[in-house]
C-alpha cells in the first residue's frame, strides 16, 4: 500500500508536469490579456469544493456515465476506467494540476527576455535555447510544482474512495480509517502519519538537493 501510494503520486506528478509545462510555456508568451483570461479559467473550477469536483468525476467516468455515453454516441464504444488505479491517478491530476501550473507559469513569466535574445545572438537555435537557458531557469518553479503536487497526492484519501471504488486503499485512507473510519485507533493512525511525514520530508530534501543545493526560491 505504501508502494501503491507512492507509485500513484509519482504518476500523477509526472503527468501534471508533462501537461503543465507546455501550457505554461505557451501561455507565458501570450499577451497579458490572454494570460489573465487563462488565469481566470484556471481558477474558476477551484472555487468549487474539491469533494464535489471529485464526485463529478465519478459521474463522468462511470460505466454508464457521461464519458461513455459520449463515446457510444460517437460509435467508439465504452471504456472502463472507474474503480481502477488509472481513475485515481486521473482524479489526482485533475485536482492538483493548478499547483503545478501556477509556479511554473510564474517563473516563466518573470524570465528575462533579453536572455533569450542573447542566446540566439550567440547562435543557439530554439531547442538549444530552451534546453540550456529556459528550462534551467524555470527549474525552481518546476521543483516547487513537483513538491506541491507530490505531497498532497501521496497523502490523498477521498479520491481513491470515490474513483477507485474503495479497492485501491492509499496511505491517506488508512490514516483516515484510524481516526474517523471503521477502525478507531489513533495510535496506529498517528504512527502511520509520522512515518509518512518522514518519507515526504526525505523526498523534499532530495528534491531540494537537485535544485542546485536548495535555492530558497525552490520550496516555499
Amino acid at each position: 500500500m505504501f508502494a501503491a501510494s507512492f507509485r500513484l503520486a509519482f504518476y500523477a506528478t509526472a503527468i501534471c508536469l508533462l501537461i503543465s509545462y507546455p501550457i505554461a510555456y505557451v501561455v507565458s508568451r501570450e499577451t497579458p490579456q490572454v494570460q489573465s483570461v487563462f488565469m481566470v479559467l484556471l481558477m474558476v473550477p477551484m472555487w468549487i469544493n474539491f469533494l464535489l469536483r471529485t464526485y463529478a468525476w465519478m459521474s463522468i467516468l462511470e460505466n454508464n456515465g457521461l464519458l461513455n455515453k459520449l463515446l457510444v454516441l460517437l460509435g467508439i464504444g465504452k471504456v472502463s476506467i472507474i474503480n481502477t488505479e488509472a481513475a485515481v491517478a486521473l482524479g489526482m491530476v485533475y485536482n492538483y494540476l493548478p499547483f503545478m501550473l501556477l509556479p511554473i507559469l510564474t517563473v516563466l513569466q518573470k524570465l528575462d527576455r533579453s536572455l533569450l535574445e542573447a542566446s540566439s545572438d550567440l547562435g543557439a537555435n530554439g531547442v538549444r535555447t530552451f534546453l540550456r537557458v529556459v528550462f534551467p531557469l524555470s527549474l525552481p518553479g518546476v521543483l516547487s510544482g513537483v513538491t506541491m503536487v507530490f505531497v498532497p497526492s501521496v497523502s490523498t484519501f477521498v479520491i481513491s474512495k470515490l474513483l477507485g471504488g474503495g479497492k485501491t486503499l492509499l496511505l491517506g485512507d488508512l490514516i483516515e480509517m484510524q481516526f474517523l473510519g471503521n477502525a478507531y485507533n489513533p495510535y496506529i493512525g498517528s504512527a502511520v502519519s509520522i512515518v509518512m511525514m518522514l518519507i515526504v520530508l526525505v523526498c523534499m530534501f532530495v528534491m531540494n538537493k537537485f535544485g542546485d543545493g536548495g535555492e530558497e526560491t525552490s520550496m516555499f
Binding site: M58, S59, N83, L162, G165, G166, K167
Partner: peptide, 18 residues
C-alpha cells in the same frame, strides 16, 4: 467480483444502473 466498496455512493451507482 466486487465493483466497488461503497456507503453513500450506492445512491449514485444503483440509481444510475451501474
Amino acid at each position: 467480483l466486487v465493483q466497488a466498496y461503497v456507503m453513500d455512493q450506492v445512491f449514485d451507482k444503483m440509481g444510475g444502473g451501474e
